[in-house]
Every structure is written in C-alpha cells, then in structure tokens.
C-alpha cells in the first residue's frame, strides 16, 4: 500500500523534493506539503483506494506522513467493511 501512496504523493503532493528521499515516518508538511496539495492528495487517495474518508479523519494528522496516510486508509477500509 505504501508504494501506491508514494506514487500518489509524487503525482499530487507538489513536494519540492523527490518522494524517494522521504522516509515513511517523515513529516510531509515539513517536506513542503501545502494545504491545497493535501486536498489533491486526499481526493487521489480516495480514488485509488476506492474509499471515502469520513469527516472526522479529514485533518492534518491523517496526512502528516506516509505511515499516517497508510493508517488512515486502513482505518477507513476497516470502517467501510464493518459498515
């Protein structure tokens, strides 16, 4: 999943550095992820993983790192399966 996330991040994150240089736990906002790019990222993740991220997860923490994004996607998938 993290490889998919990296591909989406490279395409939509608008980061000034290559995604390859960013570790899974690195803070993406520090790396240059803007608010507007985080919106693009959110929509790209929803499209790729066929999920709808609920309102309570639409915050900075959910997209703060590749690890955090993976957790967010997993949590949404688990929630959707349970529903």
């Amino acid at each position: 999943m993290k490889q998919d996330i990296r591909e989406i991040l490279a395409k939509l994150g608008g980061l000034p550095v290559s995604v390859d240089t960013i570790s899974d736990s690195a803070d993406l906002y520090t790396a240059g992820l803007s608010s507007f790019a985080s919106v693009q990222l959110m929509l790209g993740l929803e499209d790729k993983f066929d999920i709808e991220i609920p309102d309570h997860l639409l915050n900075r923490r959910s997209f703060a790192s590749i690890d955090a994004i993976a957790e967010t996607v997993s949590a949404v998938r688990a929630g959707q399966e349970a529903a």
Binding site: S38, M42, L43, D55, L58, R60, R61
Partner: peptide, 14 residues
C-alpha cells in the same frame, strides 16, 4: 465542500 472540511481543520489546527 468535503475538501473544505480538510482545509477548515487544517486552519484550526494551525
């Protein structure tokens, strides 16, 4: 919109 929800939360968090 929904994207706006994320921006609202970002604005408040910061």
């Amino acid at each position: 919109g929904r994207a706006g929800r994320l921006l609202k939360n970002n604005q408040r968090d910061q």
